[in-house]
Design a binder for these strands. Sequence first.
RNA 1: GCCCCGCUAGCUCAGUGGAUAGAGCAUCUGCCUUCUAAGCAGAGGGUCGGGGGUUCGAAUCCCUCGCGGGGCACCA
Length: 552
Amino acid sequence: MGSIRERLADALAGAVRAIGVDSELPDLELGRAKATERGEYASSAGMKLARVLKQAPQQIASRLAETIVVPEGAATVEAVGGYINFRLTPQWLQRLVTQVIAAGPSYGSDDIGHGERLQVEFASINPTGPMHIGHGRGAILGDSICRVLEFTGHDVQREYYVNSDNTQTRRFGASVYARLHGKEPPEGGYVGDYVTEIAEMARHDLPGIEQLLEEEAEPKLRMYAMQKIVEQIKATVARLNIRYDEWFWENMVWESGLGQQALNRLREAGYLKEKDGALWFGDPADVEEEDRVVIRSNGQPTYFASDLGYLLSRFEVRGFKRVIEVWASDHHGYVPRMKAAAAALGIDPAKLVIILHQMVNLKEGAARSAPTKMSKRAGRFVMLDELIDRVGSDPVRYFYLLRSPDTTIEFDLELAVTQSNENPVYYAQYAHARLANVEATAAEKHPRLPEQADVSLLVESWELDVARQLAFWPEVVEDAVRLLEPHRIPYYVQDLATAVHRFYHAGNEKGEHRVVVDDPNLTRARLELCRAARHTLKTALDLMGVSAPDRM
RNA sequence: GCCCCGCUAGCUCAGUGGAUAGAGCAUCUGCCUUCUAAGCAGAGGGUCGGGGGUUCGAAUCCCUCGCGGGGCACCA
C-alpha cells in the first residue's frame, strides 16, 4: 500500500493527467512541507508545469487542487502560489491509529523486495586481530541494512568473508611464531599484546609446537590464531546484537575449485596475460583501468584472485540476485576493479552494490587536535569490546547509526564515555518505557475497558501530533531501504519520541489530559494511540538493533 | 599529480532543486504532591568553506579555488 506520501504523489500525478498533460511528467517534488502551517506535504507542481502548460504557476496549482482526488480523504488540498499543500485530516489520522494497531509489528513494512534473494557481506575484517571501534561502524551499518531489507520483503543472507589466505595472515602467523619463542615480531608483523596471548594459548593447546621449525609451525599457528580471532569476533558482534548466517573462509574458494574456474573463464575471454613472471587481469577494451596481478610470480594468488572465485560462489553457485558489500572508504579504489572483474566474468556489475562508509579516526593523547589512524599491526586502536564495556551496546549502536556513512568520525573514547548519559538512545527508550508503564497503569485502573477504541475521541493537538508522526514512518522505511541509509531511522525515532513525550507531558500539566482517566472510552482511545506509538517505536528501534525496554 | 568523502549554530551532525535552513549537546529562563522530570516549555546563537555559473527558484546541480580525511602494491 505504501506510504501516504507515495499515495498523494500518485493522486497528484493522476490530477496532472486529468488537466491534460500528456507528455512525460517532470518530478513534481512532493515532499514534506517545512512549516506546519502549510500542512504536512507540499508539491511545487505549479512551477514545474508552467512551461509545459504555458500557464501561470498559481493557475495550474489551483486547477490541480480542484481536480485531485485524494485517497481515503486523507488530506485537504490548498493551492498557494504555485505550490500545492496537503494537510492530513484529523479523521484520517484517527483511523490511521487503528490501522497501525491492526498491522502490528509489520506497520511500515511494505513488500518492496518481493522475496529477492540477496546477500549482504559486511565487516569482513582480516582475522589478524580483534575488532576495533572502526570495524564497529561497518558491522553496525551492515547489520542495520540487513534488518531494513528483511523488514521490506527481501530474502537476506548475512555473510562474513574470512580472508584467510594472504600475506597479512602469513605475517600474523609469523608474529605468533616469534612471540612463542619470546622474540619480537618480524618487520611488518603484528605487535599487539593479543599476539603474545594467542602464542601462550597455542603453547598449551598445540603440544610440541615449539619444537617445530618455523616453516612447519607457522601454518599451524596461523590457522590456530585465526580461529581464535574469529571466535573473538563472533563474541564481539554478538554483544552488539549482530547476526551472521555464514562465515565464509577464503580458502574454500580454492578448495572448491571456483578460483581456478574463474581464472579459466577469464583466460578464455582474453582478460589474462603474463608479464614479469606473474599473471595479470586487464580489460583489453579499457585502457583507463590498470592491470592487476592475480597470480604472483611466486605462484601465490592475490586476494583479488580469491575475490574472482568468490564472485562465482555468490552469483552462480549460491544464486544471489544481488550482493551488497559494506566497505570502509579506504577500499574505495578497489570498487572499479571489482566491477570490472564481475563484468568480465559475465556478471552484471549493477548487481554488485558496494556501500562505502568513511573512516573512524582515533583522537588520542592530550593533544586531541591530532587524530590518529588506527592500526592493528601497530597495536594502536581502541577495541570495540572496551567501548561496549564502558557505554553499553545500545548507545554504541545509536552513536554509529546517527551518522551518515559519508561522514568521517573522529572518535574520542573519554568523550564518548562521559557523554554516554546524554546519548539520544535513552530519550527514545524512555518514551517507550513511559508508554509501557501507562498501559500497565490503565490495565490496573480499568480492568474492563471496551474492546473497540473510539479513535474519534483523539482530538487534542498533541494526540494528533503523535498520529501524524506515525503517518511518516512508512516513508522513512522507504527511503532507508531505497538509499540503503539506516541513519534516517534514528532521526525519525527522535521525532516520534518527541511527539510521545509531549503527549505524555500534557497529562502532567492537566489531569484530564492523562491517558488513564475516569472515562473508560476516552482511556481506551488514548490507550490505542499509546500502543500504536509504542509498537512503532519498538519496530524502529529493532531495525537499529537497539532494545526497547518497558522500564527504565 | 589523479580518484573518493567531507566543510551547515559554540560542539556533534540532519537536510528528496522549492516557500522563513533544522535536531541533539552546551549556555540562559521557567515547570515535579499527580500515568516515570532519562521529561516539558521558552531564549540566544547561521556570510550553509570562498568565488563563479545553470535555474522562475541552489545548502542541494555544474565549474573553480581553499582546508581536512582516505586511496592510488606481486598488502587487504
